[in-house]
Protein backbone atom coordinates (compact mmCIF):
# COMPACT_ATOMS: atom_id res chain seq x y z
CA UNK A 1 0.00 0.00 0.00
CA UNK A 2 1.35 3.36 -0.92
CA UNK A 3 1.92 5.90 1.77
CA UNK A 4 0.80 8.70 -0.47
CA UNK A 5 -2.46 10.03 0.70
CA UNK A 6 -4.25 13.10 1.85
CA UNK A 7 -6.01 12.51 5.11
CA UNK A 8 -9.56 11.40 4.62
CA UNK A 9 -9.89 12.03 0.89
CA UNK A 10 -8.53 8.69 -0.02
CA UNK A 11 -9.34 6.03 -2.56
CA UNK A 12 -11.47 3.99 -0.17
CA UNK A 13 -13.71 6.94 0.51
CA UNK A 14 -14.05 7.78 -3.15
CA UNK A 15 -14.80 4.19 -4.02
CA UNK A 16 -17.59 4.01 -1.45
CA UNK A 17 -18.94 7.36 -2.55
CA UNK A 18 -19.11 6.28 -6.16
CA UNK A 19 -20.81 3.03 -5.23
CA UNK A 20 -23.27 4.96 -3.09
CA UNK A 21 -24.16 7.25 -5.94
CA UNK A 22 -24.57 4.33 -8.31
CA UNK A 23 -26.79 2.56 -5.81
CA UNK A 24 -28.95 5.64 -5.45
CA UNK A 25 -29.35 5.84 -9.18
CA UNK A 26 -30.24 2.17 -9.46
CA UNK A 27 -32.65 2.35 -6.58
CA UNK A 28 -34.18 5.56 -7.83
CA UNK A 29 -34.69 4.18 -11.29
CA UNK A 30 -36.09 0.81 -10.28
CA UNK A 31 -38.11 1.90 -7.32
CA UNK A 32 -38.86 5.46 -8.19
CA UNK A 33 -40.70 7.49 -5.65
CA UNK A 34 -41.04 4.62 -3.21
CA UNK A 35 -37.32 4.84 -2.61
CA UNK A 36 -36.60 8.47 -3.23
CA UNK A 37 -39.03 9.74 -0.66
CA UNK A 38 -38.31 11.74 2.44
CA UNK A 39 -40.03 9.11 4.51
CA UNK A 40 -37.75 6.42 3.19
CA UNK A 41 -34.65 8.47 3.81
CA UNK A 42 -35.81 9.14 7.32
CA UNK A 43 -36.34 5.46 7.94
CA UNK A 44 -32.94 4.64 6.54
CA UNK A 45 -31.34 7.37 8.59
CA UNK A 46 -32.86 6.00 11.75
CA UNK A 47 -32.09 2.43 10.89
CA UNK A 48 -28.42 2.90 10.30
CA UNK A 49 -28.03 4.36 13.72
CA UNK A 50 -28.42 0.86 15.08
CA UNK A 51 -25.07 -0.19 13.71
CA UNK A 52 -23.39 2.80 12.10
CA UNK A 53 -21.63 3.95 15.23
CA UNK A 54 -20.70 0.36 16.02
CA UNK A 55 -19.00 0.13 12.65
CA UNK A 56 -17.04 3.30 13.34
CA UNK A 57 -15.96 1.89 16.69
CA UNK A 58 -14.98 -1.43 15.20
CA UNK A 59 -12.86 0.31 12.61
CA UNK A 60 -10.95 2.08 15.37
CA UNK A 61 -10.09 -1.30 16.85
CA UNK A 62 -9.20 -2.67 13.43
CA UNK A 63 -6.83 0.15 12.65
CA UNK A 64 -4.83 -0.73 15.75
CA UNK A 65 -4.52 -4.22 14.38
CA UNK A 66 -7.24 -5.72 16.52
CA UNK A 67 -10.94 -6.41 16.38
CA UNK A 68 -13.86 -5.73 18.66
CA UNK A 69 -16.52 -8.42 18.76
CA UNK A 70 -18.16 -6.97 21.85
CA UNK A 71 -19.58 -3.74 20.43
CA UNK A 72 -23.15 -4.96 20.16
CA UNK A 73 -23.15 -6.25 23.69
CA UNK A 74 -21.58 -3.13 25.12
CA UNK A 75 -24.43 -1.24 23.47
CA UNK A 76 -27.02 -3.47 25.07
CA UNK A 77 -25.35 -3.30 28.45
CA UNK A 78 -25.20 0.49 28.35
CA UNK A 79 -28.81 0.67 27.28
CA UNK A 80 -29.75 -1.63 30.13
CA UNK A 81 -27.90 0.28 32.80
CA UNK A 82 -29.24 3.60 31.57
CA UNK A 83 -32.75 2.27 31.51
CA UNK A 84 -32.48 1.02 35.07
CA UNK A 85 -31.05 4.31 36.29
CA UNK A 86 -33.81 6.22 34.56
CA UNK A 87 -36.35 3.88 36.06
CA UNK A 88 -34.91 4.58 39.47
CA UNK A 89 -35.91 8.19 39.07
CA UNK A 90 -39.52 7.33 38.39
CA UNK A 91 -41.74 8.46 41.18
CA UNK A 92 -45.29 9.53 41.73
CA UNK A 93 -44.36 13.04 40.77
CA UNK A 94 -42.61 11.84 37.64
CA UNK A 95 -44.34 8.72 36.40
CA UNK A 96 -42.74 8.98 33.00
CA UNK A 97 -39.27 9.63 34.27
CA UNK A 98 -37.65 12.88 35.29
CA UNK A 99 -35.22 14.96 33.31
CA UNK A 100 -32.55 14.50 35.95
CA UNK A 101 -33.07 10.80 35.79
CA UNK A 102 -32.73 10.79 32.06
CA UNK A 103 -29.59 12.88 32.10
CA UNK A 104 -27.97 10.85 34.82
CA UNK A 105 -29.06 7.68 33.08
CA UNK A 106 -27.40 8.78 29.85
CA UNK A 107 -24.25 9.76 31.69
CA UNK A 108 -24.09 6.41 33.41
CA UNK A 109 -24.66 4.63 30.13
CA UNK A 110 -21.82 6.46 28.46
CA UNK A 111 -19.59 5.85 31.42
CA UNK A 112 -20.31 2.12 31.29
CA UNK A 113 -19.32 2.17 27.64
CA UNK A 114 -16.02 3.78 28.48
CA UNK A 115 -15.35 1.27 31.22
CA UNK A 116 -16.14 -1.66 28.94
CA UNK A 117 -13.86 -0.24 26.28
CA UNK A 118 -11.18 0.27 28.85
CA UNK A 119 -11.40 -3.37 29.88
CA UNK A 120 -11.02 -4.45 26.27
CA UNK A 121 -8.10 -2.08 25.78
CA UNK A 122 -6.24 -3.24 28.84
CA UNK A 123 -6.72 -6.91 28.05
CA UNK A 124 -5.32 -6.34 24.58
CA UNK A 125 -2.50 -3.89 25.31
CA UNK A 126 -1.33 -4.76 28.81
CA UNK A 127 -2.15 -8.43 29.29
CA UNK A 128 -1.59 -9.00 25.58
CA UNK A 129 -4.54 -11.27 25.02
CA UNK A 130 -5.25 -11.62 21.30
CA UNK A 131 -8.05 -9.14 20.51
CA UNK A 132 -10.35 -11.77 19.04
CA UNK A 133 -10.22 -13.79 22.22
CA UNK A 134 -10.33 -10.80 24.55
CA UNK A 135 -13.44 -9.32 22.98
CA UNK A 136 -15.00 -12.77 22.80
CA UNK A 137 -14.62 -13.10 26.55
CA UNK A 138 -15.84 -9.60 27.24
CA UNK A 139 -18.77 -10.06 24.90
CA UNK A 140 -19.94 -13.03 26.96
CA UNK A 141 -19.36 -11.08 30.12
CA UNK A 142 -21.28 -8.00 28.98
CA UNK A 143 -24.03 -10.18 27.53
CA UNK A 144 -24.23 -12.05 30.82
CA UNK A 145 -24.39 -8.92 32.92
CA UNK A 146 -27.19 -7.58 30.77
CA UNK A 147 -29.14 -10.79 31.29
CA UNK A 148 -28.59 -10.57 35.02
CA UNK A 149 -29.71 -6.96 35.09
CA UNK A 150 -32.89 -7.79 33.30
CA UNK A 151 -33.36 -11.12 35.05
CA UNK A 152 -33.72 -12.69 31.66
CA UNK A 153 -36.28 -10.25 30.37
CA UNK A 154 -36.06 -7.08 28.31
CA UNK A 155 -35.70 -3.82 30.23
CA UNK A 156 -38.02 -1.00 29.34
CA UNK A 157 -37.28 2.63 28.79
CA UNK A 158 -39.07 5.31 30.68
CA UNK A 159 -41.69 7.04 28.61
CA UNK A 160 -40.02 10.41 28.51
CA UNK A 161 -36.95 8.96 26.94
CA UNK A 162 -38.83 7.24 24.19
CA UNK A 163 -39.45 10.38 22.29
CA UNK A 164 -35.82 11.36 22.03
CA UNK A 165 -34.98 9.32 19.01
CA UNK A 166 -38.18 9.93 17.21
CA UNK A 167 -38.22 13.68 17.06
CA UNK A 168 -36.75 15.12 13.97
CA UNK A 169 -34.38 18.00 13.66
CA UNK A 170 -33.47 20.50 10.98
CA UNK A 171 -36.64 21.57 9.28
CA UNK A 172 -38.43 18.75 11.00
CA UNK A 173 -36.95 16.34 8.50
CA UNK A 174 -33.67 14.80 9.57
CA UNK A 175 -33.88 12.18 12.31
CA UNK A 176 -31.80 12.88 15.38
CA UNK A 177 -29.99 9.56 15.37
CA UNK A 178 -28.75 10.28 11.89
CA UNK A 179 -27.44 13.66 12.99
CA UNK A 180 -25.63 11.98 15.84
CA UNK A 181 -24.09 9.56 13.37
CA UNK A 182 -22.96 12.24 10.98
CA UNK A 183 -21.54 14.47 13.70
CA UNK A 184 -19.72 11.53 15.25
CA UNK A 185 -18.34 10.50 11.90
CA UNK A 186 -17.09 14.01 11.19
CA UNK A 187 -15.43 14.38 14.57
CA UNK A 188 -13.90 10.93 14.36
CA UNK A 189 -12.65 11.60 10.83
CA UNK A 190 -10.73 14.56 12.08
CA UNK A 191 -9.43 12.76 15.14
CA UNK A 192 -8.29 9.67 13.25
CA UNK A 193 -7.17 11.39 10.11
CA UNK A 194 -5.66 14.63 11.16
CA UNK A 195 -4.39 14.45 14.70
CA UNK A 196 -1.21 13.06 16.15
CA UNK A 197 -3.30 10.58 18.10
CA UNK A 198 -4.91 9.37 14.90
CA UNK A 199 -1.56 8.82 13.24
CA UNK A 200 -0.34 6.99 16.30
CA UNK A 201 -3.29 4.61 16.13
CA UNK A 202 -2.29 3.76 12.58
CA UNK A 203 1.37 3.34 13.43
CA UNK A 204 0.62 1.02 16.32
CA UNK A 205 -1.44 -1.05 13.90
CA UNK A 206 1.40 -1.19 11.38
CA UNK A 207 4.14 -2.24 13.81
CA UNK A 208 3.62 -2.28 17.54
CA UNK A 209 7.28 -2.91 18.32
CA UNK A 210 8.55 -0.02 16.25
CA UNK A 211 5.91 2.16 17.84
CA UNK A 212 7.25 1.34 21.29
CA UNK A 213 10.79 2.09 20.16
CA UNK A 214 9.61 5.38 18.72
CA UNK A 215 8.28 6.51 22.04
CA UNK A 216 4.60 5.93 21.34
CA UNK A 217 2.68 4.88 24.42
CA UNK A 218 1.12 1.74 22.97
CA UNK A 219 -0.98 0.99 26.00
CA UNK A 220 -2.53 4.44 26.04
CA UNK A 221 -3.16 4.51 22.30
CA UNK A 222 -4.73 1.08 22.09
CA UNK A 223 -6.81 1.53 25.20
CA UNK A 224 -8.03 4.89 23.95
CA UNK A 225 -9.08 3.33 20.66
CA UNK A 226 -11.11 0.65 22.42
CA UNK A 227 -12.57 3.20 24.80
CA UNK A 228 -13.76 5.30 21.90
CA UNK A 229 -15.31 2.18 20.44
CA UNK A 230 -16.95 1.58 23.80
CA UNK A 231 -18.28 5.12 23.87
CA UNK A 232 -19.73 4.78 20.39
CA UNK A 233 -21.34 1.51 21.41
CA UNK A 234 -22.80 3.23 24.45
CA UNK A 235 -24.28 5.92 22.25
CA UNK A 236 -25.81 3.23 20.07
CA UNK A 237 -27.26 1.60 23.14
CA UNK A 238 -28.91 4.81 24.22
CA UNK A 239 -30.28 5.48 20.77
CA UNK A 240 -31.68 1.96 20.60
CA UNK A 241 -33.19 2.32 24.03
CA UNK A 242 -35.01 5.38 22.92
CA UNK A 243 -36.08 4.06 19.56
CA UNK A 244 -37.16 0.59 20.53
CA UNK A 245 -38.18 1.58 24.06
CA UNK A 246 -36.61 -1.52 25.54
CA UNK A 247 -33.34 -3.41 25.72
CA UNK A 248 -32.90 -7.09 25.01
CA UNK A 249 -29.60 -8.67 25.96
CA UNK A 250 -29.04 -10.31 22.59
CA UNK A 251 -30.32 -7.51 20.37
CA UNK A 252 -28.34 -6.89 17.26
CA UNK A 253 -26.17 -9.98 17.31
CA UNK A 254 -26.35 -10.15 13.54
CA UNK A 255 -24.74 -6.73 13.40
CA UNK A 256 -21.35 -8.22 14.22
CA UNK A 257 -20.98 -9.54 10.70
CA UNK A 258 -22.37 -6.39 9.19
CA UNK A 259 -19.99 -4.09 11.00
CA UNK A 260 -17.00 -6.17 9.97
CA UNK A 261 -18.19 -6.02 6.37
CA UNK A 262 -18.61 -2.26 6.62
CA UNK A 263 -15.18 -1.77 8.14
CA UNK A 264 -13.49 -3.79 5.43
CA UNK A 265 -15.51 -2.15 2.65
CA UNK A 266 -14.57 1.19 4.11
CA UNK A 267 -10.88 0.44 3.74
CA UNK A 268 -9.82 -1.21 6.97
CA UNK A 269 -7.35 -4.03 6.75
CA UNK A 270 -8.00 -6.82 9.24
CA UNK A 271 -4.27 -6.93 9.90
CA UNK A 272 -4.24 -3.36 11.03
CA UNK A 273 -2.61 -0.11 10.15
CA UNK A 274 -4.98 1.06 7.44
CA UNK A 275 -8.35 2.63 7.21
CA UNK A 276 -9.93 6.05 7.51
CA UNK A 277 -13.27 7.06 8.91
CA UNK A 278 -14.80 8.79 5.86
CA UNK A 279 -14.54 5.50 3.95
CA UNK A 280 -16.16 3.55 6.76
CA UNK A 281 -18.93 6.11 7.27
CA UNK A 282 -19.76 6.04 3.59
CA UNK A 283 -19.66 2.25 3.67
CA UNK A 284 -22.32 2.43 6.38
CA UNK A 285 -24.52 4.39 4.01
CA UNK A 286 -23.82 1.95 1.21
CA UNK A 287 -24.78 -1.05 3.30
CA UNK A 288 -27.88 0.74 4.56
CA UNK A 289 -29.03 1.52 1.06
CA UNK A 290 -28.45 -2.06 -0.03
CA UNK A 291 -30.31 -3.26 3.00
CA UNK A 292 -33.25 -0.95 2.44
CA UNK A 293 -33.38 -1.77 -1.22
CA UNK A 294 -33.47 -5.49 -0.54
CA UNK A 295 -36.15 -4.86 2.00
CA UNK A 296 -38.34 -3.44 -0.68
CA UNK A 297 -38.14 -6.66 -2.64
CA UNK A 298 -40.57 -8.97 -0.91
CA UNK A 299 -39.09 -12.13 -2.41
CA UNK A 300 -35.80 -11.55 -0.65
CA UNK A 301 -36.40 -11.92 3.04
CA UNK A 302 -34.24 -10.45 5.76
CA UNK A 303 -32.14 -13.52 6.20
CA UNK A 304 -30.91 -13.48 2.67
CA UNK A 305 -29.30 -10.18 3.52
CA UNK A 306 -26.94 -11.89 5.91
CA UNK A 307 -25.86 -14.28 3.22
CA UNK A 308 -25.41 -11.39 0.86
CA UNK A 309 -23.15 -9.60 3.30
CA UNK A 310 -20.97 -12.68 3.47
CA UNK A 311 -20.78 -12.88 -0.31
CA UNK A 312 -20.08 -9.16 -0.56
CA UNK A 313 -17.28 -9.35 1.93
CA UNK A 314 -15.56 -12.22 0.17
CA UNK A 315 -16.14 -10.61 -3.20
CA UNK A 316 -14.80 -7.25 -2.12
CA UNK A 317 -11.69 -8.73 -0.58
CA UNK A 318 -11.08 -10.75 -3.74
CA UNK A 319 -11.46 -7.65 -5.85
CA UNK A 320 -8.95 -5.81 -3.67
CA UNK A 321 -6.56 -8.73 -3.90
CA UNK A 322 -6.49 -8.65 -7.67
CA UNK A 323 -6.24 -4.89 -7.74
CA UNK A 324 -3.26 -4.90 -5.41
CA UNK A 325 -1.63 -7.61 -7.47
CA UNK A 326 -2.10 -5.58 -10.63
CA UNK A 327 -0.72 -2.48 -8.96
CA UNK A 328 2.44 -4.10 -7.67
CA UNK A 329 3.32 -5.82 -10.90
CA UNK A 330 3.18 -2.57 -12.83
Amino acid sequence: MTAKRKSGINSDFLRMLIILIVLFIVAGVTRGSAFMSVKNFQTMGKQLSEYGLLALGLSMAMITGGIDLSTVYIANLCGATSALVMQAFVSEANPDGSLTGILIGCAVGLLVGLVCGCLNGILVSVVKVPPMLATLGTYELFYGITIVLGKGKPINAVNNFKSFAKNDVLFDMVPRPFIIFVVSAVILSIVVGKTAFGRRIHLVGVNEKAAAFAGIKNVAVITAAYMISGLLSAMTGLINLSKIASVKADFGSSYVMMTILIAVLGGCDPNGGYGEIPGVATAVLVVQVISAYLNSIPQINNYYRQALYGVLLLGFMTYKYFRNKAKSSR
Binding site: M1, A3, K4, A196, R199, R200, H202, L203, V206, N207, K209, A210, A211, F213, A214, G215, I216, G273
Partner: peptide
Protein backbone atom coordinates in the same frame (compact mmCIF):
# COMPACT_ATOMS: atom_id res chain seq x y z
CA UNK B 1 11.10 -4.54 13.11
CA UNK B 2 12.18 -2.03 15.75
CA UNK B 3 13.40 0.99 13.92
CA UNK B 4 11.03 1.56 11.05
CA UNK B 5 7.43 1.34 9.93
CA UNK B 6 8.20 -0.25 6.59
CA UNK B 7 5.02 0.45 4.59
CA UNK B 8 4.78 3.98 5.96
CA UNK B 9 6.27 7.02 4.26
CA UNK B 10 9.83 8.16 4.83
CA UNK B 11 8.40 11.47 5.95
CA UNK B 12 6.33 9.96 8.68
CA UNK B 13 9.12 7.67 9.83
CA UNK B 14 11.36 10.68 10.31
CA UNK B 15 8.81 12.83 12.12
CA UNK B 16 7.10 10.19 14.26
CA UNK B 17 8.81 11.08 17.54
CA UNK B 18 8.00 14.74 17.20
CA UNK B 19 4.35 14.70 16.23
CA UNK B 20 3.53 17.03 19.08
Amino acid sequence: TEGLFLPVSIMENITVVNFD
